[in-house]
Design a protein around this nucleic acid. Structure first.
Lengths: 256, 256
DNA sequence: ACACATGCGCTTACATACAAGCGCCGTACT
DNA sequence: AGTACGGCGCTTGTATGTAAGCGCATGTGT
C-alpha cells in the first residue's frame, strides 16, 4: 500500500485557527444544519421519537440532502438520533441507561477536576463564575435562559482546573441527560436550588476546602436523578422502553 | 414548524439489536470504511500527517466517494483526521494536549469506576480478566497483539463496575493517546511491566482493597507519560507543534 | 536574481440521480 | 371475518455530477 506522506512547512498561519477547532471545520452548510438540529433536539423542540426525513429537512432548510444527511450521521454518533437504514431516522427516545452513563461520566470528570484546581485560581475566571452566578439568580424560573448559564458554569469550573478541553467530550456524552434534565426543570422549577448549590461549590473551592467541594458537587450532580423517575412516569412515551419498542411510520402531525 | 411525531407500537423485535448499537447502524459500506480507516490510523499504518484523498481512497477501496467522505467526517469529529475545506484531509498529528486530555478523562473514569466495583464481582467476568492476563503474558513483546488485550482488560474492569457503556466514550477520546502509546511501546517493550500492573490492580480489587487499587491504577495509567516525551524528541514530525504548523501538499511516497 | 501575477490541477462542499429495501395498505382468497 | 400476498410509496445508501477555492508552478516583469 502506498501512502502519501506530507511533510510540514508550517508557519503559514493559515489554518492555525482552524486547527484549534476540534469539531466541524468551518462555517459550512453542514455545520449550520448540525448546530440547528442539535439545538432542536436538546431543547425538545424536536421531541424524542420524532421522524427526521432527510428529504423533508433538506426542503425545509432549502438545501440538498447531502449536508442534512451528514449532520444526521454526526447526531447519530452522539446518540441523539437513530438511523434505521431504508426505514427512517428518528430522534432517539431518552434512554435511562445513557442518562446514567452520562451522570457517571460527568461525576467522574467534574469531581476529578476539582482536585486539580490550583490554590490561587485565575482571578478573571473566578470573576466570570461570580458574574454567572448573579445571572443565574436574575433569570430564575426561566429554564431556557437558565440552561446555558448552568452549562457555562460547569464548563468554567473545568477551566479553573485547566481541563476545559474535556468539556466537549462531556457535552457529547450527556445529550440524553440534558433532555431528561430539561424535562424535569420545565415541570417544577428547582433552579434556585441548583444556583445555591453552584455557589456553595465555588465557595468551598475558593476557601480551599476540596473535600467539601467534592461532597457538594456530588450532591448537586445527583439532584437531577430524583426528578427523572417522576418525569418518566408522567411522560413514558419520551423514554426508551427496555422491551425494545421501535418507532413505526404511523405518524401524527404535531404543531408548536 | 410542523414535526411529524411517531407513536410507538413496538414489540416487533425487528430493530432491537440495532437499537443496542450506539455507533454506526449496520454492516454498511460506510461502517466498513470507517473501521478500516480508524484501524489504519490508530495502528500508525497511516502515519500522522498522511494525506487522505477522498478520490484516492474511493478508488483503492473500489467504492464511491460518498461512504469515504462520510467516514472521514466521523474521524474528523473524533479528532483523528483534520479536514481543511477545499484543501485536503490529513491524519492529524499527535496532539500532546489531546493526549493529556485523554489521560485525565481516562484516569477520572477508571478511578471512579473502581469505587463502584461490588464486593463480590461476577465470577465469569473475573475469569475473563484472568484469562486475559494469561494471554497478555503469552504475547509478550508483540505490541500488535498486546494492545487489543490491554484494551479488553480495561474495558473488562469497567464491566466489573457496571460502567461498560462508558468505554466507547473513553475510546473515542483517546485516539491520540493510543497512538502515542503505540509509538512508545514499539520502541522499548514495557509490556511485561504493564501486565504486572494490571494483575496488581485486579488482585487489590478482589481482596477489597480499593485504596490500593486506586493507587496502583493511577500509577499504571501514568506510566505512559514517561515515554511520550522521549518519543516526541525522537519523532517530532509525528506530533503537532504548538506553533501552528500545517501540512502542505508537498508529498513523498512512502511504502510499507 | 528576485518579486509578483496568473493559470492549472488538485482538493473538498454541495447537488442530483440511481439503487435497494422495508412497511403500509389494498386486494383477493379462504 | 380473517389472513395471506403483492404493489406502491417512502425511506436511506451509494454513485456521480457540478461548483468553488486554495496551493503550487510557471512565466513574466523588474
Amino acid at each position: 500500500m502506498c501512502v502519501r506522506y506530507v511533510n510540514q512547512l508550517g508557519g503559514r498561519g493559515l489554518f492555525t485557527t482552524v486547527v484549534s477547532v476540534p469539531t466541524l471545520p468551518a462555517r459550512t452548510s453542514r455545520r449550520a444544519v448540525y448546530d440547528e438540529l442539535r439545538r432542536r433536539v436538546v431543547t425538545l423542540q424536536l421531541p424524542p421519537g420524532a421522524a427526521l426525513s432527510e428529504n423533508e429537512l433538506a426542503a425545509e432548510l432549502g438545501i440538498s440532502r447531502t449536508p442534512v444527511r451528514e449532520s444526521l450521521i454526526l447526531l447519530s454518533q452522539e446518540g441523539l438520533v437513530q438511523v434505521f437504514p431504508k426505514v427512517g431516522s428518528f430522534v432517539s427516545r431518552v434512554d435511562p441507561d445513557r442518562v446514567a452513563d452520562a451522570q457517571f461520566l460527568r461525576e467522574a470528570v467534574e469531581l476529578a477536576s476539582l482536585d486539580d484546581v490550583p490554590a490561587d485560581p485565575a482571578p478573571d475566571l473566578v470573576a466570570e463564575l461570580r458574574a454567572n452566578l448573579a445571572a443565574q439568580e436574575a433569570v430564575d424560573q426561566d429554564a431556557d435562559a437558565f440552561f446555558p448559564l448552568d452549562e457555562e458554569f460547569h464548563h468554567g469550573l473545568l477551566r479553573l482546573a485547566g481541563h476545559e478541553r474535556t468539556w466537549p467530550t462531556v457535552v457529547a456524552a450527556k445529550g440524553h441527560l440534558d433532555r431528561a434534565r430539561r424535562l424535569g426543570l420545565t415541570e417544577n422549577a428547582s433552579m434556585s436550588v441548583f444556583r445555591d448549590q453552584h455557589e456553595a461549590v465555588l465557595d468551598a473551592l475558593l476557601r480551599g476546602d476540596r473535600a467539601a467541594a467534592r461532597t457538594l458537587m456530588r450532591t448537586h450532580l445527583r439532584a437531577v436523578f430524583a426528578d427523572i423517575e417522576r418525569v418518566r412516569r408522567r411522560s413514558p412515551e419520551l423514554f426508551a422502553s427496555n422491551a425494545g419498542s421501535v418507532p413505526t411510520r404511523r405518524s401524527v402531525a404535531v404543531w408548536d
